[in-house]
Computed example of a mutant assay.
Amino acid sequence: MKLRPLHDWVVIKRDKPDESLLWVPDKPVNRGTVTAIGPKVKEISVGHQVQFNPYSGLEVACNGQTWVFINEAEISFIDYGGV
């Protein structure tokens, strides 16, 4: 399924929780990979690893996959890996 968001919406595939933990929190994971962006998005690109509020945006499930639709302004930061 191809997604094409409008305006400043960003589509994120949420990362899976770390299953090596003995206790998995009820809070959803707050990071993921950008899979699509709207035409008015300025600072985020497809493929970026981003961090966001775990309860923001709109979660959409289709064909066994789940995506998070979120406004660009609600993304906290881009994770370029390694410090």
Results as ranks from 00 to 15, higher is better:
residue 1 M to R: 07
residue 1 M to S: 08
residue 1 M to V: 06
residue 1 M to T: 09
residue 2 K to F: 11
residue 3 L to K: 00
residue 6 L to K: 15
residue 6 L to I: 10
residue 7 H to V: 11
residue 8 D to R: 08
residue 8 D to L: 05
residue 8 D to N: 06
residue 10 V to C: 00
residue 10 V to S: 01
residue 10 V to H: 07
residue 12 I to K: 09
residue 13 K to N: 14
residue 13 K to H: 15
residue 15 D to M: 04
residue 16 K to Q: 10
residue 17 P to K: 09
residue 17 P to V: 05
residue 18 D to R: 00
residue 19 E to H: 09
residue 20 S to P: 02
residue 20 S to L: 11
residue 20 S to T: 08
residue 21 L to M: 15
residue 21 L to H: 13
residue 24 V to I: 14
residue 24 V to K: 12
residue 26 D to N: 10
residue 26 D to Y: 10
residue 28 P to Q: 02
residue 28 P to H: 01
residue 29 V to G: 09
residue 32 G to Y: 06
residue 33 T to R: 11
residue 36 A to L: 08
residue 36 A to C: 11
residue 38 G to C: 11
residue 38 G to N: 06
residue 43 E to D: 12
residue 43 E to F: 15
residue 45 S to A: 12
residue 46 V to Y: 06
residue 48 H to I: 00
residue 49 Q to I: 02
residue 49 Q to L: 01
residue 51 Q to L: 08
residue 52 F to K: 09
residue 53 N to M: 11
residue 55 Y to C: 07
residue 55 Y to K: 09
residue 55 Y to E: 08
residue 55 Y to S: 08
residue 56 S to E: 10
residue 56 S to P: 02
residue 56 S to V: 01
residue 58 L to K: 08
residue 58 L to V: 01
residue 58 L to A: 03
residue 59 E to M: 01
residue 60 V to M: 06
residue 61 A to V: 03
residue 64 G to A: 14
residue 64 G to W: 09
residue 65 Q to F: 11
residue 67 W to D: 05
residue 68 V to N: 05
residue 69 F to C: 12
residue 69 F to T: 03
residue 70 I to T: 07
residue 72 E to R: 00
residue 72 E to T: 02
residue 74 E to Y: 07
residue 74 E to D: 15
residue 75 I to K: 00
residue 76 S to R: 13
residue 81 G to D: 11
residue 83 V to P: 06
